[in-house]
Write a protein that binds this DNA or RNA. Structure first.
Length: 379
DNA sequence: AAGCTAGACAACCGCGTTCCG
DNA sequence: TCGGAACGCGGTTGTCTAGCT
C-alpha cells in the first residue's frame, strides 16, 4: 500500500505525544476545528503524521471524552452489542457517549474477553465452551488433541491450557458476580440457547454471507436498537415463556417495540428462570447422560438473577440473601472482597477428574476410529 | 533495591471505503 | 469511469506502571 504523503517524511515523529504537542493540537483545533488532517501537522507546527493527529484528537484530546472507568451498565451494553454485531467497535462506541472505539476495544481485550472466558463463555461466539467443543468434536478428520487445541481461538486455548477443568461453570453469586453479570449469563449463554445473532441477526460477522451486505446494516441497527432498549429497561431481554431454555429476543417494528421488547415480569424477576448447570452442558458430548444422585450434587443451579449452588440451598444462603447482598452494593459489582471473580467451582475434584476422564475417553475413541487421519503430516 | 511480570491503554499499521477532481 | 488522496476501522504492538518476588 502506498503511504499517505504526510507519513512518508522521514522526520515524522512517532510514539507518545508530549504535553507540548497536545497543546499545539488543542490550540489548532480550537482555532480551526477538525478536518483535513493531512494539513494539520504543518499548520499546527507538529512533526506528526496527519493520521496520528486525527487519532490523538479522537482518542484522547476530544473534550467530550469520559475519563472514568467503565460502569457495569456500559460493560453490559458492550457485551450485548458484541454478541449482536461482533467487533464493530466504532458502532458499539457510538452507543456509549464519551467512549471511543479504541477505548471499547481495549476494554474488551483486557477485561471483558477474559471475564467471559472465566465464565466459560467463548468471547468470540458468546457460546459456552462446552457447546463449541461439542460442535467442534462433530467435525470429521480431527487432528491430534494438542494440535486440535492449538487450532482453537486463543480464548478457548487459554481456557484449556491454563485451567485444571476445561469448562468451568459460572462462578456463584456469592463469589462475586453482579446481578448484571448474572443476567448476562442467562441472556448470552443460557442453556441450549442459540446466540442472539444465530436467531435474529443472520448476517452478523460470524455468519456472514458475502451477498448479504444490504441486510447486514439493517440487522446491526436492529441489534443495536434491541440491545440498547433491553439495557434501558432492566437488562433483561424478552424471554419466551413457551421456551424456557430458548430465550427469544424480539425484533419488531417501531410501532410494536414497546410491547415486544419488554422486560421480564416482576414474578419472573423474583423467582428467576432457574435452570441448572446440567442444562448448560446438555449438549456437551463428553458428559455422561445418566446423572446419578452423586453427580446431581455437583450440579450448579443459577437463575437469571443469581447463581445459587443447588446443593447449598438448605444452608441458609438463600437466593434472596444473595440478592440483598448485591442490592447493598447498588447492583454494582457484588464482589465481596473485590477483584476478579474467582473461578469458583463447587464441584469436587473427583467430579473434575470424571469430567476430564470422559473427555479423554471420547478422544481415545475418536483416535481409534480415525487412526488413519491422525497420521496427517501437517500435524 | 533490582528484576520480572501482567495489566492497562496509547499509538501504530494495514486495509477497505469514501470522496473528489 | 477512473485514479489518487483522505478517512475510518479493526487488529496489533509498544510503552508505562504497579505489584510481586
Amino acid at each position: 500500500m502506498v503511504r499517505p504523503p504526510c507519513c512518508d517524511k522521514l522526520n515524522v515523529k512517532k510514539g507518545l505525544w508530549s504535553e507540548e504537542e497536545d497543546a499545539k493540537m488543542l490550540a489548532y483545533v480550537s482555532k480551526h476545528g477538525t478536518g483535513n488532517w493531512t494539513a494539520v501537522p504543518k499548520k499546527a507546527g507538529l512533526r506528526r503524521c496527519g493520521k496520528s493527529c486525527r487519532l490523538r484528537w479522537t482518542n484522547y484530546l476530544r473534550p467530550d471524552l469520559k475519563r472514568e472507568s467503565f460502569t457495569p451498565q456500559e460493560e453490559e451494553l458492550i457485551i450485548r452489542l458484541h454478541a449482536a454485531i461482533g467487533s464493530r467497535w466504532s458502532i458499539i462506541a457510538q452507543q456509549l457517549p464519551g467512549r471511543t472505539d479504541n477505548d471499547v476495544k481495549n476494554y474488551w481485550n483486557t477485561k471483558l474477553r477474559k471475564k467471559l472466558s472465566e465464565m466459560g463463555i467463548d468471547p468470540v461466539t458468546h457460546k459456552p465452551f462446552s457447546q463449541i467443543l461439542a460442535d467442534y468434536g462433530n467435525i470429521g478428520g480431527l487432528p491430534k488433541s494438542r494440535a486440535r487445541i492449538g487450532s482453537l481461538n486463543r480464548d478457548m486455548k487459554n481456557a484449556f491450557l491454563t485451567r485444571p477443568e476445561p469448562f468451568p461453570p459460572p462462578a456463584t453469586a456469592a463469589e462475586g458476580f453482579s446481578n448484571i453479570n448474572n443476567r448476562l449469563m442467562t441472556t448470552i449463554a443460557s442453556p441450549g440457547m442459540e446466540p442472539i445473532q444465530d436467531n435474529f441477526f443472520p448476517n452478523n460477522s460470524i455468519n456472514h454471507h458475502p451477498d448479504s451486505d444490504s441486510l447486514e446494516l439493517l440487522s446491526q441497527l436492529q441489534a443495536i436498537k434491541v440491545v440498547t432498549e433491553a439495557t434501558n429497561y432492566t437488562g433483561h431481554q424478552t424471554i419466551s415463556p413457551q421456551f424456557p431454555n430458548k430465550y427469544s429476543l424480539s425484533l419488531s417494528s417501531p410501532s410494536s417495540s414497546s410491547t415486544s421488547s419488554t422486560c421480564s415480569t416482576a414474578a419472573q424477576e423474583k423467582s428467576g428462570l432457574a435452570f441448572s448447570w446440567r442444562d448448560f452442558l446438555l449438549e456437551d458430548a463428553f458428559l455422561p447422560t445418566d446423572h446419578t444422585q452423586g453427580q446431581e450434587d455437583r450440579i450448579l443451579e443459577f437463575s437469571s438473577d443469581e447463581i445459587v449452588p443447588q446443593s447449598h440451598s438448605s444452608n441458609g444462603t438463600s437466593a434472596e440473601n444473595i440478592d440483598n447482598n448485591n442490592s447493598d452494593n447498588n447492583g454494582v459489582q457484588g464482589i465481596s472482597g473485590g477483584g476478579v471473580p474467582s473461578h469458583g467451582f463447587h464441584a469436587s475434584s473427583s467430579t473434575n477428574s470424571s469430567f476430564v476422564a470422559a473427555m479423554i475417553d471420547q478422544e481415545n475413541e475418536m483416535f481409534s476410529e480415525f487412526a488413519n487421519l491422525l497420521e496427517d503430516p501437517c500435524y
